[in-house]
Write a protein that binds this DNA or RNA. Sequence first.
DNA 1: GATATCTATGAGCTTTAACTCACATTCTCT
DNA 2: AGAGAATGTGAGTTAAAGCTCATAGATATC
Lengths: 233, 233
Amino acid sequence: MRARPRTTPRKAPRQARSRATVDAILAATAQVLVRDGYDRTSTNKVAEVAGVSIGSLYQYYPSKEALVAALIERHMQRLAALLETKMIEVGEAPVPVAVRALLSALVDAKTLEPKLQKVLMEQVPRVGRLCKVAQMDKHFEDLLRGYLQMRHAQIRPTNLDAAVFLLVTTGAAVTHAIATDRPEHISVEELVDETAEMVMRYLRPDAPAHDRDEDDDELPARAPVTELHPLPS
Amino acid sequence: MRARPRTTPRKAPRQARSRATVDAILAATAQVLVRDGYDRTSTNKVAEVAGVSIGSLYQYYPSKEALVAALIERHMQRLAALLETKMIEVGEAPVPVAVRALLSALVDAKTLEPKLQKVLMEQVPRVGRLCKVAQMDKHFEDLLRGYLQMRHAQIRPTNLDAAVFLLVTTGAAVTHAIATDRPEHISVEELVDETAEMVMRYLRPDAPAHDRDEDDDELPARAPVTELHPLPS
DNA sequence: GATATCTATGAGCTTTAACTCACATTCTCT
DNA sequence: AGAGAATGTGAGTTAAAGCTCATAGATATC
């Protein structure tokens, strides 16, 4: 029985020439994946499209899976970096603003190359366990947990673990669907709004029963999502 | 370049003997898929495990993809039937009860054979366009849209199309994740509760600002999810 | 410019899974 | 019983993707 192939790069390029080769290989991989789909992508075809010999390809990547793994890793790292940046950017903003900004940023990022996004994500289970994707996921969860903890006074859910699981799952799936499977008759804006609405209502504390004279530490029940103002702290 | 393989069955069994053969083939497909994963599943191996000759297999299915497509189709049909049954069962129940019941039923169904569930769903994109999966998805959406329309007086979202897209995407992803990727330290119950809570808060109309003397047509702001009572109609 | 290392080449070997087909067996029906 | 249809068989063909290796060229370093 064929063993599961390795997915780690074989060796790193050291000179400028070889770095160019590796870049060409990865670019060609993306191109062929999008053009032909995963099944009909082969290392021979990738090498041909990249304009390098099949031998060169195998100098750096031991298998087709390794090629895809490298692309996925790069892709996830970009997303993680984006998310982290955005999170710092909106860290002080009111929760509704932050939620919408993060969702919107994710959708935008995934919309840049929707076909590549789609193919790569479809291959994550195949390649995932063998590269750093699991760590990335963990990282996303940690980021979100940190945020929720920081904001715990303004947030309803008490079961943080469950909330993080639910929100990460939902966020990943919905932004991916919006970027790659959106029916034409619904706009991206509408969908992002609707998603932000759902997440906000999930996070938002219940409106207190008593009259609201006092200065409490909660989000307004219907914060205007577009308005950017500092929180009462 | 290799063409995309057909995924429709070649011919239907007519006698009891051949029906048994086809059953054995599908059972073996499921078993090998779970044991070895998609990539290392081959038609030869499936035939061997099924105890039939490779020739017999090709009498009924023209490719490996066709085998998986058949399994996926059967699987989706079961889910669809379950969902439809449950929906009728809870059609008259209050929305919170219905939401929780549907989510719970889906998670239960997907938890029965989590590994098979996982492998099959991972192959949907590969096989999906060529079998009836898209129709199934459409069917789910129609079911939900019907329900939301029926309940529109008790429900907040006005953009039905967006709501249906969001809820179907979320429901599919989250129930799948709960059944196949749940971290051990969180219970299924907790996760289903949390999900139901999110969906409910998304669907629930805003509590009116005025005092609630009158008999209005909305859900109670915090309906106890476990209690089953007829709606005011 | 000599030497060692890094890099590139591509014909071709190996492996494996997909798939066929000529023939054998079993079933159905009169 | 017997004819024709349905079903089952598996060795063998085909196709193609994965991958190696002997060789050659490029670059760095002294």
